[in-house]
């Protein structure tokens, strides 16, 4: 499964998208994100399953 990785450096900063990881479980995704992005000392680091991201976009309303 693909996971998007989000983080902020300091409390109050904006949370930014910093990359992605592929993992077989949520628990493993958390560890992979930590392993991969540990060069910074994050205040907040989180993973979100890509399939759980809901895009918001304008669509033509259906007629029928």
């Amino acid at each position: 499964m693909k996971y998007e990785v989000f983080a902020r450096i300091n409390q109050g900063d904006e949370t930014l998208h910093i990359g992605n990881v592929t993992a077989d479980s949520d628990r493993l995704a958390r560890m992979y994100a930590r392993n991969t992005f540990d060069e910074e000392d994050w205040d907040y680091l989180a993973v979100v399953r890509r399939e759980h991201i809901l895009e918001v976009k304008a669509e033509t309303p259906g007629v029928i």
Binding site: D24, S25, R27, L28, R30, M31, N35
Partner: peptide, 10 residues
């Protein structure tokens, strides 16, 4: 330990 457990689960 958290990594090991996550890995052993998969």
């Amino acid at each position: 330990l958290e990594y090991h457990d996550a890995r052993l689960e998969t």
